[in-house]
């Protein structure tokens, strides 16, 4: 009987010795989709100063400063400025003014100063300089008082 048990154990060991441990492998897939995103953060507003001939009120003039904004994007969007529609002028200024908003970017993507919609294709953070120029023609002049205009910076 003892011999029988030993023989059985030995035969079982012999049967298992040739078997390899079986392991299965599988792939786990991960998918991610990033849609176009855009965040605008206004850093500062701009300041316009008048030219010596009193026909230009612009952030480009001496003493003036551009408004500044930061744009964070994945790319695949466009940046633009709207024509200026909201202005406040002194009561003494009764003549027409042509307002021209422009923007330029630096950082992730560089865009030279323009007034037309421009694609932002490079992902990252760009700094936008927003300028505004008001001009009068003929004999018209800017007069003393407070001027204010709103420029819409759009990312779409």
């Amino acid at each position: 009987m003892k011999f029988f048990r030993v023989a059985m154990a030995a035969s079982l060991l012999a049967a298992c010795a040739g078997q390899t441990a079986s392991a299965a492998t599988g792939n786990v897939l991960f998918n991610g989709t990033i849609t176009a995103t855009c965040t605008i953060t206004i850093n500062s507003n701009g300041t316009m100063t008048v030219s010596s001939n009193l026909q230009s009120l612009s952030s480009h003039n001496a003493g003036g400063s551009a408004g500044s904004a930061q744009v964070d994007t994945t790319g695949g969007v466009s940046l633009s400025v709207d024509p200026v529609t909201t202005t406040t002028v002194p009561a003494s200024d009764t003549t027409a003014t042509t307002w021209t908003p422009t923007f330029a970017t630096s950082g992730a993507q560089t865009i030279a100063e323009t007034g037309t919609a421009t694609a932002l294709t490079v992902p990252g953070t760009s700094t936008v300089a927003v300028n505004l120029a008001g001009t009068k023609s003929g004999t018209n002049r800017f007069s003393a008082g407070n001027y204010q205009a709103t420029v819409t910076l759009r990312c779409e």
Binding site: C38, T39, I40, T41, I42, N45, G46, T47, M48, S59, G67, A69, D82, V130, L132, N146, Y147, Q148, A149, T150, V151, T152, L153, R154, C155, E156
Partner: peptide, 24 residues
């Protein structure tokens, strides 16, 4: 359509900037 999120500009500044994010 464009659905746009707009913000209120800083007050009391000469050149205000209104931020507008538009989705199509």
């Amino acid at each position: 359509v464009r659905i746009c999120t707009e913000s209120i500009p800083f007050p009391s500044e000469q050149t205000q900037i209104r931020a507008q994010i538009c989705g199509k």
